[in-house]
Nucleic acid binder design. Structure first.
Lengths: 191, 191
DNA sequence: GCAAGAATTGAACCACCATTCAGTCCTTAG
DNA sequence: CTAAGGACTGAATGGTGGTTCAATTCTTGC
């Protein structure tokens, strides 16, 4: 019983994610999500008090998955420069793999309550990067700087540079290397 | 008569801008805009076919004003490094002066048709910066790079770095110098 | 088996707001 | 001065989609 209850909760979240990946937040009416999850519209409200609460959780889940993937890729490398390269490549690779989802997570107009969750998402990336920047500064691999601000600016540059390609569907072959060069220079990675 | 007609058109746009500056796009119901402009709700539709058209124009007007101010500040300087500094300072100074408006122009959830106008806004900044970057590359002040991508990334970094302070209401004293350092390094300005 | 209670259903409800329009007011040309 | 034509009014309309709830179906403890 408990199992069934939390199972349909999971199915609702999964359905919402699938619809987001296919048609963006715009396609996510409560009725559509419920239908895809195989439950009645009203049942969604057994699990979430409002639509905004549902999507806050959906965003949190999807974001966590993205941040984890990026963090995992970064952890495999050793120098800060390599780690940052891995972050850029993983982030943009995954975004281009699911452009509609990436657009929804990054930039699509959503309910303000859900938008707040987006800030958390971006902040999570920033924290990850800030940690590496701080260690780079400490070890002397990078020049002195405010790791928080650097990380925030890097996240902004990364997100902005992806919005165009996401809209177009593909990135030019030189986008990612150029972006990597830009960010390495910004961090002060020695050439 | 013609004068009066275009006068109320202007008043409607001005009213929309004022409400945006005070309560964001969220506060901009057609009724509220009309009331502030001193016209009836229906009269808005004498001047604009839809709300989206009205706000596309509002965004265009406001954006143009911002881009012009930034371009003017940049034109007063001589080196690319100085010009970029002027852009950063003018952009962030103006944003912090009218945080609610800046948030609406940069990041607030809006109708998709209006959102499209936002891309134009960001692109206008990017074009401005790309021009200077290209000239810097040509003159040897900056190392070789793709000016378009660099400019896009700079705009992203700038916008992202402002969102936090805009939400908080103020920027720490070191935000702008740090951001300037970051961007100078990213462009490859020689220290 | 069998209540009692919980979960589920989905059609109905309702709030919100952009948009419309029939009536009224002004402007202006003759 | 006066009629014609356009502008203005603001209450009414309509569509959308989130939210509710009475009826029904299932689960579980006795």
């Amino acid at each position: 019983m408990k199992a069934r209850l939390s199972a349909s909760r999971e199915r609702i979240i999964a359905a919402a994610l699938e619809i987001m990946a296919g048609h963006g937040y715009a396609g996510c009416s409560v009725a559509a999500v419920a239908e895809r999850a195989g439950v009645a519209t009203g049942s969604v409200y057994r699990h979430f008090p409002t639509k905004a609460d549902l999507f806050a959780e959906v965003f949190r889940t999807a974001s966590q998955r993205e941040v984890d993937a990026v963090a995992r890729a970064a952890a495999l490398e050793t120098t800060v420069a390599e780690r940052v390269s891995a972050i850029i490549e993983t982030f943009s690779g995954r975004a281009l793999q699911s452009p509609r989802l990436a657009y929804a997570l990054l930039a699509e107009p959503v309910d303000p309550a859900v938008d707040a969750e987006r800030l958390v998402f971006r902040r999570a990336y920033a924290e990850l990067i800030a940690g590496y920047v701080a260690s780079g500064v400490a070890s002397g691999e990078l020049p002195p700087q405010d790791p928080e601000l650097t990380a925030t600016a890097v996240v902004g540059a990364l997100a902005e540079a992806m919005v165009g390609p996401l809209a177009a569907g593909v990135a030019g072959g030189s986008t990612i290397p150029s972006l990597t060069t830009f960010i390495h220079r910004a961090l002060g990675v020695s050439p």
